[in-house]
Design a protein around this nucleic acid. Structure first.
Lengths: 240, 240
DNA sequence: CGACAAAAAATTTGATCATATTATCGCCCG
DNA sequence: CGGGCGATAATATGATCAAATTTTTTGTCG
């Protein structure tokens, strides 16, 4: 899946040293520029660094990151296709805004897709991988205790998608990712308003269901986890 | 929403004549190049003009359509994000192939999303719009009677998405589109193998439910329609 | 002497950039 | 308050660089 290091070609140790000197991170240094830009903006949307309605310009990103226009354009097209950004007709793009109708759609879609991913994952997940999930949940709780909103959102995302990744799903998983991209900016506002203290999750119940090898219980726990997040949004915005 | 014709700038009749001579359709001639390329490849995937596994090269499209690399790259990135194409690691893209597992995911996703779109649409659709749908269904049947596989697939797509468009959905509708993009190449093979004679649909039942203002019945009719298509695939490939 | 395999050159394809072109927005003036 | 003018940002192209595949060459072994 990932781009393999070019070990088959005649890359010498000398050249490797040169590369790692030029680029910052030697591990994922040879990622394409458009991929780097994509991930950068994607994470900003996903973790609420960008507000709903905020404009995203090509040249702004060209200045921010040091790349040319072409990779930025590609990244923006991709993000628009994934629903992380929207085209505003007059060739401008911005972070999408949400109303009651869109939120209802988002609720329906997440409740349909994510429990199924949890169910598929529960059937094949190994004990060792459950332990890894438990470790992520500890970091979620730590971030909540520390009042670290940004860290909470990242670790919470990590918990869900580390679980879903085990479902070996090439269709449902990308769907879930687009839904989280839509949810990110809104959820960040809610978290900022109420703080991490009021956040509750069903991660413990999920972990227990996984340890019991009970796929249906895992699906139900994820459904409950999602629903608890939605409930805060619903009451705050009055979207009942 | 659409790009307005550049009437504000100093475009002379002479230049207009030149443009319409160069471009085929004067109506949507001023679409961005990347959009044109995108629609071209998208329709090819959707209606099965490209086989599963078939490679799609940038330079091949540059030669086929007469545009530069940049718009083609953007179109391919967008289509990859939508699942119409897949990245094969070594920076090449191709039409995705399907196995039993992916097919099961596709079945689940379409059965979850599309009945809901039909339900939402049924609540707001007007009589006149139902008549329009009935007209499309007649064209579906005409294509089936004529044994026109390509026409059948286009009109069938038109029937579903003309209905879904009334749902006023910005989240579920794009999801359904990506699922059809995944389904297109596979379904084209099946249609080619068995011909349009063996195809059956639930469009009449759907139309009746819409006329009855029965949203649940409309959702059920679409669910049955989808299921009938899947059944042929299942038996042919032995994916039970 | 022929054939297979490994290595190297060549061609093809993809990625990035700098630049020209074109459309849109904001502002000023009538 | 509306229409033209300049600034700004987006689109599209061709050129350039890098990587991967294919083809050719070469050497060795049967």
């Amino acid at each position: 899946m990932c781009r393999l290091p070019a070990s088959s070609t005649g890359i010498t140790l000398h050249k490797m040293a040169l590369m790692s000197a030029q680029k910052k991170s030697a591990v994922k240094a040879n990622l394409p520029a458009h991929e780097v830009v994509y991930r950068k903006i994607r994470d900003k949307v996903l973790f609420g660094k960008l507000k709903p309605g905020q404009a995203v310009t090509i040249q702004g990103l060209v200045d921010e990151i040091q790349v040319s226009m072409t990779p930025v354009r590609e990244a923006i097209r991709r993000l628009t296709a994934e629903g992380a950004l929207v085209n505003q007709g007059n060739r401008r793009v911005s972070v999408p805004q949400m109303g009651a109708g869109r939120f209802a759609e988002l609720v329906f879609a997440r409740q349909s897709i994510e429990p199924e991913l949890a169910r598929l994952a529960a059937r094949v997940i190994k004990d060792k991988e459950i332990d890894e999930l438990a470790g992520i949940d500890q970091r979620v709780n730590a971030a909540m205790d520390a009042g670290d909103v940004s860290g909470y959102m990242q670790e919470n995302h990590s918990f869900h998608f580390t679980l879903y990744a085990h479902a070996d799903s090439e269709i449902l998983l990308p769907l879930a990712e687009t839904l989280w991209l839509r949810y990110g900016p809104l959820y960040r506002i809610i978290c900022g308003k109420y703080g991490t203290g009021s956040m509750v999750d069903q991660h413990e119940e999920t972990l227990q269901a996984l340890r019991d090898r009970d796929a249906d219980a895992a699906a139900q726990a994820i459904l409950n986890d999602i629903e608890q997040g939605f409930e805060i949004v619903r009451t705050d915005y009055g979207w009942s």
